[in-house]
Simulated scan of single mutants.
Amino acid sequence: MLNEAVDSLLNKPETSNPSAAGAAATYVDATFGRGGHSRLLLSRMAPQDRLIAFDHDPDAIAEAATIADPRFSIRHQGFRHLGELPDASVAGVLMDLGISSPQIDNPERGFSFRFDGPLDMRMDTTRGESVAQWLATAEVKQIAEVVRDYGEERFAGPIAKAIVARRQERGPISTTTELAELVAGAVKTRESGQNPATRTFQAFRIFINAELEELQHALDASLRVLQPGGRLVVISFHSLEDRIVKQFIAKHAREVVDRRAPSWMLGGATAMPLEALGRVKPSAAEVAGNKRARSAVMRVARRTDAP
């Protein structure tokens, strides 16, 4: 949904030509990845506009260095730092959540059970604890809670017990293949077309990078940094992310009337800071060309004039 996301952020059709007239606008690509959204945004922004990107992946920072456009800058930070921008200074915030294809396809990053590699899964390899390091000391209860809560895996208990038993017998798990094989032995029934380790890998990645907590911080910050009329565009790839985004927009877009107040005090609904603009799913053509897109959901909201 590359073009759809940029269209929604800029609030103008793809064929429009940016005008040099008017005040400068600042946009934020909160999850740079490999720069697809940023490059398209730069091609359609006005000459006086600017684009600020965030990413905590060193490979993303290296890719951003290839963009020779004075309107563009990137911060080697997670998008929880969005709130460090000035209040009401941004015309649009784009968040493309989850993991990028280059990260998945690099065995050294340890994100995929399709390749044998170190069990790392950190978005930022320069800091923090890897999955292997955490599993080397985590207790059964901790592991089970992570697999259940972040992977929605019904065999979380058996998986956690198998991991700790393996650690006690032969030492900690250190590779993606070891983890995938161990999970496959603990999962008694499998979803059609899905590797039994899918949910567990997702859970450990989300946990080790504190992805859901970072998302909530970034959404809260977007209310402060978006100027009136500014757009919030969020693309999610699994239900945990989308639920947070959906509930956030609903909470701040739903008009509220305090029915406990006396009738003479009911002067109308409380003004809300967001207006929900819609939910978009990828086209059949996009899904046919990119299987990963099949689970994508894009939600769009607009910052209102409400305080």
Score class of each variant (00 low, 15 high):
Leu82Gly: 11
Ser130Trp: 14
Phe72Asp: 07
Gly278Cys: 09
Glu181Met: 00
Phe201Leu: 05
Gly289Asn: 15
Asn106His: 10
Pro102Ile: 12
Pro107Gly: 07
Arg299Tyr: 06
Asp305Arg: 15
Pro196Leu: 00
Ala138Cys: 14
Ala160Gln: 07
Pro282Cys: 13
Phe79Tyr: 13
Val256Ser: 10
Ile208Leu: 01
Gly83Ala: 04
Gly185Thr: 03
Lys246Phe: 02
Val131Cys: 14
Thr175Gln: 09
Pro228Gln: 10
Ala285Asn: 14
Val280Ile: 15
Phe237Gly: 06
Arg224Gly: 04
Val28Asp: 11
Ile67Tyr: 10
Asp49Ile: 11
Pro273Ser: 03
Asp120Ala: 12
Arg303Thr: 09
Pro102Ser: 12
Ala165Arg: 09
Glu152Gly: 11
Ala210Thr: 06
Val187Met: 02
Ala46Asp: 08
Ala24Ser: 14
Met298Ile: 15
Arg44Gly: 04
Ala160Leu: 02
Lys246Pro: 02
Arg259Ile: 01
Thr15Trp: 15
Gln247Asn: 14
Thr304Tyr: 13
Ala253Val: 00
Arg294Pro: 10
Ile244Met: 09
Ser100Ala: 06
Glu14Val: 13
Ala5Phe: 12
Ile249Arg: 00
Ala269His: 08
Ile143Cys: 14
Val183Tyr: 02
Met123Ile: 08
Glu255Asp: 00
Glu108Pro: 03
Arg109Trp: 07
Ser192Leu: 08
Thr198Leu: 02
Arg292Asp: 11
Asp7Thr: 15
Gln227Cys: 08
Arg303Met: 12
Leu226Asn: 03
Thr137Leu: 08
Val187Pro: 04
Gln227Ser: 13
